[in-house]
Amino acid sequence: MKKVEIFDPAMCCSTGVCGPSVDPELTRVASAVFALEKKGFDVTRYNLTSEPDKFVEEKVNKILMSKGPDALPVVLVNGEVEKEGSYPTNEEFAMWFGVEEKELKGEKPRVRIKLNLSDMK
């Protein structure tokens, strides 16, 4: 079974929904990782802010020392560097784990929620 490790740059959270604006790329990756984990696949993300000890992994540390933090994210597949400086696409995730790309997209809400902001004072 494949093992994917994603070494994220320093950030407050990996979902992309914190801070002043939503980062759609982080949201896409978080959704794909969640879908893969639900299927029992081995995908792990490490955040430089909260888990700096993980970044001493030899290959990741070598990249950081030579290219700096702009090389993040770094993606290892079965311990080998597969990607630097950008997150895997859903197509790449699907290829690595042998799943359909459509299985990695977040599910749409089943119930619509309506908010009337004019009632809030």
Rank of each mutant, 00 (worst) to 15 (best):
A30D: 12
L72V: 07
D70T: 11
N47K: 12
G85N: 08
D70W: 04
D8P: 02
A32T: 03
A10H: 14
G40L: 03
S118V: 14
M95F: 10
P20Q: 10
E51G: 12
S118C: 07
K67M: 04
G85Y: 03
V43F: 00
F97Q: 00
V17L: 13
K67P: 00
E58K: 11
L64H: 04
K3P: 02
K3D: 04
T44W: 01
M95T: 15
V60R: 00
L64W: 06
R45M: 15
L104G: 00
G68F: 03
K3V: 07
F41H: 15
D53W: 10
E57I: 12
G16C: 10
P20G: 04
K54I: 02
F41V: 03
N78L: 02
V4A: 07
R28N: 06
P109V: 12
T27E: 12
G98M: 02
R112M: 06
P88E: 00
S86L: 04
F93G: 02
P73N: 08
P20Y: 11
N47V: 09
E51T: 15
K105D: 06
M65Q: 15
V99H: 03
L72G: 00
E92Y: 08
C12Y: 13
C12N: 09
K59H: 09
L117E: 14
M95W: 05
K114A: 11
L104D: 01
R28H: 07
N90S: 11
G85E: 14
E25I: 14
D42C: 05
I6T: 01
E100S: 08
G19A: 06
R110W: 03
D53H: 13
V77H: 04
V56T: 11
R110F: 13
N47T: 06
I6Q: 02
V4S: 03
T27S: 12
D119V: 10
K121C: 05
K102H: 12
N90M: 06
S31M: 12
L72Y: 03
E37W: 06
L64F: 10
L36K: 00
V4P: 02
A32E: 08
V43C: 01
W96T: 02
F41Q: 00
